[in-house]
C-alpha cells in the first residue's frame, strides 16, 4: 500500500500532529497485516529526524500503546455502543427477499456433555428410508464459510460445523449435523424449506435463520417472521400436530428429558458470530469459555468452579483468544497457565 503514502513535502505542510496521525494509521494497518511493513520506512525515518515531529510521534505512540491495556471497565459504554451499530443497508444486502422473509436461529448446544460428544454424527437410522443424495458442507474449528445452496439460499456456517442439504422438486431439506449455521432462505411457496437439528424440525417458507447443533440441547431462535417447530428428525416427514409457533425474538430451548422452554432473546448479541465476534453480557466465565473454545483447537481450560462462576461482559473476536484472556486477567485476579498442548488454564492467582 505504498500508493497511499504522502511525500515528505506534504507531511511538512500538514504539520507534526496531522502527519503523526497519518503514520499512526499506517502503523495500525502494518500491525494487523493489512499494509506492507517495509513501504515508507525511509520516508518515516527522514520525517522523524525533525524534533517537533518526533515529539508528536512519541505522543501518538504513547497514546496508542497505552490503550493496549486499559482495564475492563474503561470505555465500557462506548464498546457496547460500537458493537451495537448495525450495518448500513443490512436489509438490502442481506435480505433481497425481505418482504416474505423471516429470520430464525436454531441453536443446539451441548451444556453437559463433553467436547467429544459434539463430533458424534447423528445416527443414520434417523434419516428417511430413501433420502435423495445429500450434499455435505463443513467447516473446521475456527473457520467460517459462506455457502450458496442450489436454490440460491445462503448459509453461513460457523466454526466446526457440518451441514447436509438434500433438495427434491417438492421440498428443500437440510440437516445440521453439528455446529451452527445461519440460513437466508429463498422464498418459494411450492417448495418448503425444512431444517432438522437434533430431534426437532424447523419448517420455513422464506427466511433467514441460524442453527447450532450438538449433543443434548437444541436452541431455536427466531429473529424475524414466523416459523413452526415440530418434533422429529426427518425433514421429509413432518407431523404438524403439536407444532410450536415462534414469533420474532422467541427462543425455544429443547433438552432431552425436560419440558421445552420458550423465552425471549437479544438478536444482536446472539448473531455476533457471523461478524467474527462473540458477545457476552454478564455471562459466566464458564459459559463464555465454552463458546470461545468452539473456535480454536487451543482451548481455555477452567478447573476451578469459582473461576468458572465469575461474570464477564464484552465482545471478543472469535479468532483472538488473547483478547479474552487479557480482559479476564484485567478484571479478576486470574493468571494464565500455559499447557503443553497449546491450551491454557485460567486459574486464580495464588
Amino acid at each position: 500500500m505504498s500508493a497511499d503514502l504522502p511525500t515528505l513535502a506534504m507531511l511538512r505542510t500538514m504539520g507534526p500532529d496531522r502527519a503523526a496521525a497519518i503514520w499512526l494509521e499506517r502503523l495500525v494497518r502494518v500491525e494487523s497485516g493489512d499494509a506492507d511493513p517495509s513501504a515508507g520506512d525511509t520516508l518515516f525515518e527522514e520525517w522523524l529526524r525533525d524534533d517537533a515531529n518526533r515529539v508528536a510521534w512519541d505522543r501518538a505512540i504513547e497514546l496508542w500503546d497505552g490503550l493496549a491495556e486499559v482495564d475492563g471497565g474503561a470505555f465500557e459504554d462506548m464498546r457496547s455502543d460500537a458493537l451495537r451499530i448495525r450495518p448500513q443497508g443490512l436489509v438490502r444486502s442481506w435480505m433481497p427477499y425481505a418482504i416474505a422473509a423471516s429470520i430464525f436461529i436454531v441453536v443446539l448446544v451441548s451444556l453437559v456433555a463433553g467436547y467429544g460428544n459434539l463430533t458424534r454424527p447423528a445416527p443414520d437410522a434417523r434419516i428417511a428410508a430413501n433420502p435423495p443424495a445429500e450434499k455435505q458442507y463443513r467447516t473446521e474449528v475456527g473457520q467460517r464459510a459462506a455457502i450458496v445452496l442450489e436454490d440460491g439460499s445462503k448459509v453461513t456456517l460457523d466454526t466446526d460445523s457440518v451441514l447436509k442439504a438434500a433438495f427434491t422438486s417438492g421440498v428443500r431439506t437440510a440437516r445440521l449435523v453439528r455446529g451452527q449455521a445461519l440460513f437466508e432462505v429463498r422464498h418459494d411457496v411450492r417448495r418448503p424449506f425444512r431444517v432438522a437439528a437434533g430431534d426437532r424440525v424447523v419448517a420455513v417458507l422464506g427466511t433467514e435463520f441460524d442453527i447450532r447443533v450438538s449433543a443434548d440441547e437444541t436452541r431455536i431462535m427466531l429473529v424475524r417472521g414466523s416459523i413452526a417447530v415440530t418434533k422429529g428428525s426427518d425433514p421429509f416427514r413432518v407431523d404438524d400436530t403439536g407444532a410450536q409457533r415462534l414469533a420474532a425474538g422467541d427462543q425455544l430451548v429443547v433438552r432431552k428429558g425436560m419440558p421445552d422452554v420458550k423465552s425471549r432473546f437479544v438478536a444482536d448479541a446472539t448473531l455476533q458470530w457471523r461478524h467474527g465476534f462473540l458477545q457476552f453480557d454478564n455471562d459466566s466465565l464458564g459459559a463464555a469459555v465454552a463458546e470461545l473454545n468452539r473456535y480454536s483447537p487451543r482451548k481455555i481450560v477452567l478447573r476451578d468452579p469459582r473461576v468458572a462462576g465469575l461474570r464477564i461482559s464484552g465482545a471478543f473476536p472469535t479468532g483472538n483468544r488473547q483478547a479474552f484472556l487479557t480482559t479476564a486477567t484485567a478484571l479478576y485476579p486470574l493468571r494464565v497457565i500455559p499447557l503443553p498442548n497449546g491450551s491454557v488454564e485460567l486459574a486464580s492467582k495464588p
Binding site: 495500525v28 494487523s32 490503550l67 486499559v70 460500537a82 458493537l83 465476534f277
Partner: peptide, 10 residues
C-alpha cells in the same frame, strides 16, 4: 473503538 479496544481488523 472496534479497532483499538476490540482488536478487530479493518
Amino acid at each position: 473503538v472496534l479497532c483499538r479496544l476490540e482488536g478487530a481488523r479493518y
